[in-house]
Write a protein that binds this DNA or RNA. Structure first.
Length: 291
DNA sequence: ACCACTACCTGAAGGC
DNA sequence: TGCCTTCAGGTAGTGG
């Protein structure tokens, strides 16, 4: 599910039911997701007010009044659902908040009850997601999950000059380099494929051949594709939903992703989309117009 | 230091 | 119907 546009869609959905509210109860239904939850996780969350909900790359960051920040990653299958009304089964009773509606849904691993009676349900079938806490005062350096990240692709620090520098000398294919969160933070498999198609750059080209005119082409199309996807509410491939259940619709705008053996959408190109595997991930591209 | 590859986990989809 | 294989939006860790 979640690359930057999907995470941003989730952030926008959660923001009104998290910011300024207190985490009254936190149900942690298993000891770990991808990693173990931190010590005393529930106790450190309960009673805290969420002062702001931010996104950094594909991470959601809930800043807490007590000086810690809750870091959340959706992995491949993580999703948040907002449930407004508590079920009839005494959700106000301490200990009875495991699931608001009682319809035990598999893989509902973490449930927050916020002040105002709203439940936030984190469901993650594959458990590649994770949550942890770190000291807010330390900033990005306070957690290894953030400390090595490259710039936000929609921010000012992401520029052709930055890309030139980050890609210089790299012998890995540009496709893999753009998936490296140290180069630029937030791209995933879909948007890298789409951006390379827009820039007319072959995914097989070595990263070190990009600096210069190709970087200058790449930076604006990366911004464009992410902005368009955010506007579309992200991409729904099989199960991504916003917190209110809305489906993303950027998948209808794909030029190459998932379109193997279909015609290239570039006018006059006449090529066919092909698929290859790079670093264990599918790459979709048009060999005719991507050089 | 770089880079490629595997592991982590479940579920959906396709072939037989 | 059911069993088997393959594939999936990510990233930490390992080993060459």
């Amino acid at each position: 599910m979640p690359e930057l546009p999907e995470v941003e869609t989730v952030r926008r959905g959660l923001s009104p039911v998290m910011e300024g509210r207190v985490i009254e109860h936190a149900a942690i239904n298993r000891p770990n997701l991808r990693f173990a939850f931190p010590d005393r996780f529930r106790e450190r969350l309960e009673g805290q007010t969420v002062t702001a909900l931010d996104r950094r790359a594909k991470y959601l960051l809930a800043h807490l009044s007590g000086g810690e920040t809750l870091l959340m990653h959706l992995g491949m299958s993580g999703r948040f659902t907002i449930v407004d009304e508590a079920g009839e089964s005494g959700a106000n009773t301490p200990g009875a908040y495991s699931h608001p509606a009682g319809d035990q849904s598999k893989h509902d691993h973490v449930i927050f009850r916020m002040s105002g009676g709203v439940f936030l349900i984190f469901n993650d079938a594959r458990r590649f997601g994770f949550m942890t806490l770190f000291a807010s005062a330390g900033g990005d350096e306070a957690t290894p999950f953030l400390s090595g990240l490259g710039p936000e692709p929609l921010g000012n620090a992401f520029s052709p000059a930055h890309l030139d520098c980050a890609l210089a000398g790299k012998r890995t294919p540009i496709k893999s380099a753009l998936l490296d969160q140290r180069v630029v933070a937030g791209l995933g498999n879909i948007y890298v494929c789409e951006a390379l198609w827009r820039a007319g750059i072959s995914p097989k080209r070595l990263a070190r051949t990009i600096p210069g005119t190709r970087s200058a082409r790449l930076v604006p199309v990366i911004r464009d594709v992410l902005n368009e996807a955010i506007t579309a509410g992200g991409t729904t491939l099989r199960d991504f939903k916003a917190t209110d259940g809305a489906l993303g619709y950027f998948q209808h705008s794909f030029a190459v992703y998932g379109r193997e053996s279909e015609p290239c959408r570039k006018p006059e190109c006449g090529g066919t989309v092909s698929r290859l595997v790079q670093a264990g991930r599918s790459t979709f591209f048009c060999a005719a117009c991507q050089r």
